[in-house]
């Protein structure tokens, strides 16, 4: 089940730019740029995996734990099929989720052992930037109800049931409003800021 969503927006190739297997192989050979690239690509998926199961703060800890374990496996040459590193990382996430091994001590040890700091996670995430004023411009074009749903979802991190209760609508309606609002924001963010249409 491979989605064609990437094709719909055009795949953004990175500076590494070669086949995934090659990038992973270079990471396995000790190339730190390739290793960073592998982490950069996997971290958002790991975070989504964690966010599905955990509250935000715990999800971020989980994502860091899982990525450290992926890195440990890469540096320990334990990824035997480089082209299957995505499945390998998913397996780590599933095992970690099963174990719920969110042991602070082990995490600190691993972070120390592999020399990872919070700054490394910032490097993995540094492509995750939106122009605040652009989002602000797009956000202001949503209806009040859409703004409420998006704000409650992403800023207040509320579940759908309390959002629905607050807005006096059904939870399924919250889901539909969120999907429509996300599509509207995505479309708007692909265009220039609206004010720039009159220069």
């Amino acid at each position: 089940m491979r989605s064609d969503s990437a094709a719909a927006v055009g795949s953004v190739k990175t500076s590494v730019g070669d086949a995934v297997g090659d990038t992973v192989s270079r990471a396995l050979a000790g190339d730190r740029d390739a290793e960073t690239e592998v982490c950069r690509r996997l971290l958002p998926a790991i975070r989504a995996f964690a966010r599905r199961r955990l509250r935000p703060a715990a999800a971020e800890d989980f994502a860091q734990d899982a990525l450290v374990l992926v890195l440990e496996a890469l540096r320990g040459q334990r990824v035997r099929e480089p082209e299957r590193v995505a499945s390998f990382a998913l397996g780590i996430c599933r095992n970690l989720a099963r174990e719920r091994a969110r042991n602070g001590e082990r995490r600190r040890e691993l972070l120390a052992q592999f020399g990872l700091t919070d700054a490394d996670f910032i490097v993995f995430d540094n492509h995750l930037e939106l122009r605040r004023e652009h989002l602000e411009d797009c956000f202001s074009q949503l209806t009040e109800r859409s703004r409420d749903v998006i704000r409650a979802t992403f800023c207040d991190e509320e579940d759908d049931a309390p959002i629905a209760a607050k807005l006096a609508i059904s939870a399924s309606n919250v889901r539909v409003i969120r999907h429509r609002s996300l599509a509207a924001l995505r479309t708007c963010l692909e265009k220039p800021i609206s004010w720039e249409g009159s220069r």
Binding site: R2, S3, S5, A6, A7, V9, S11, V12, K13, T14, V20, V38, R41, L42, P44, A45, R47, A48, F49, V85, A86, S87, A89, L90, D125, H127, L128, E129, L130, L135, F154, L182, L185, R186
Partner: peptide
Amino acid sequence: LFARALDDEAPELGFRQQL
């Protein structure tokens, strides 16, 4: 999702986290 993330072909992940 994980396979597409590694291939840099899961733009929805970046969009959601940026947002």
